[in-house]
Design a protein around this nucleic acid. Structure first.
Lengths: 191, 191
DNA sequence: AAGCAATATGGGACGGCGTTCAGAACACAC
DNA sequence: GTGTGTTCTGAACGCCGTCCCATATTGCTT
């Protein structure tokens, strides 16, 4: 299958190693055949991203939540970091692969990304019983972006401080401090 | 100059709009001439990234610190977000442009990225008077990665929750909660 | 001012790319 | 065997990054 071959190319050489001709060579078909199955190369890669997002989503949904925000979110963070580090090259697709301006980002793709924060909102709920929905949304977004920043910096290997080994530690630190800040604020009655 | 033309191309069409021939057309030279000034196209883009990092660094260093971590870090976060959003397309280079595996990331490039967290460590210092240096480092890394995650998700426009408008708000929320968590922990004598 | 070495430039060439498309090959109903 | 619908090939187009070398331009020495 085309997707299988493309995955292997990405895992060995990253996005730069992918080309329509190279995929064709790998599956021993001619380049033209690719265009029967996919609209173009971007379509192949987008499909691959979608599969990856679905798998991450499935893993997040498989985490049992026990109602304790600290431990629940720690587990979510661990899962997230483990996934991104196990699939580092594929993971980097999310940032490196930009759809050309001509055709906009499909809605289902956005929806998949947005959907990833839902699990966070559920886990955060106990801390936000009498907060406005926009605040729950905001807290989830902040945590998601933070975890995401750590995961992406670690897979991209651009910061010496943030390695694959330290990512889990940093995520744990982020979550515990942020939640401490929230509950502290909650106890003192500040918004 | 070559860099000027390349900057314009990136600002209008992103990294995908950049090609050696297009730059040459823009400056009305032939493509071959590019290779007298730069080793190759990656070199041009790397130089552009370096300039951008230097400018961000300069802005961060221009922020006066008054010794109050909350307000100091808020100002740093604001500056960071404002910069990334004002230079969104250039900013995205940091993630989209990956050096081919053949030649490794130059040390000075890493050093520039690592240097960006220094200002954070200084601003955090009052909260960490009797903490181990690794903890200061960790807190700075976490905050940096978090701010960075928010900034990159907003410039990439991939999350509907995280827009250029909301980025500053989210960064402020992250910093204030995280620091609350730190001082709370400090007051209670926990690690 | 003239000559010469050093450097910069133009433009063609090479191999590779994404994508298209006319026609060959194939599978299968009648 | 003929016809029909699908799938595949392979050449073609216009790009790309990069290299190379004949030519033009510059700067310096005499």
């Amino acid at each position: 299958m085309i997707l299988q071959a493309t995955t292997e190319l990405i895992e060995s050489d990253g996005l730069a190693g992918v080309s329509a001709r190279e995929i064709a060579r790998k599956i021993e078909y001619s380049p033209g055949t690719l265009y029967n199955a996919f609209r173009n190369l971007d379509d192949v890669i987008l499909t691959l991203e979608a599969r990856m997002l679905d798998e991450l989503q499935a893993r997040l949904e498989g985490i049992p939540l026990d109602g304790n925000p600290q431990s629940d979110l720690q587990r979510i963070g661990e899962t997230y970091v483990a996934f991104s580090s196990d699939n580092a090259q594929l993971w980097n697709l999310l940032f490196q692969h930009q759809i050309p301006n001509s055709e906009p980002i499909p809605d289902w793709y956005r929806a998949k990304l947005d959907g990833l924060t839902q699990r966070l909102e559920v886990a955060l709920a106990p801390l936000l019983v009498n907060a406005k929905p926009t605040e729950a949304n905001r807290a989830a977004s902040v945590l998601w972006a933070g975890v995401h920043g750590i995961a992406s910096l670690s897979t991209a290997e651009k910061l010496t401080n943030i390695t694959k080994e330290s990512a889990a530690l940093l995520v744990s630190d982020l979550i515990s401090h942020y939640l401490d800040g929230m509950s502290h604020r909650l106890a003192n009655g500040r918004s």
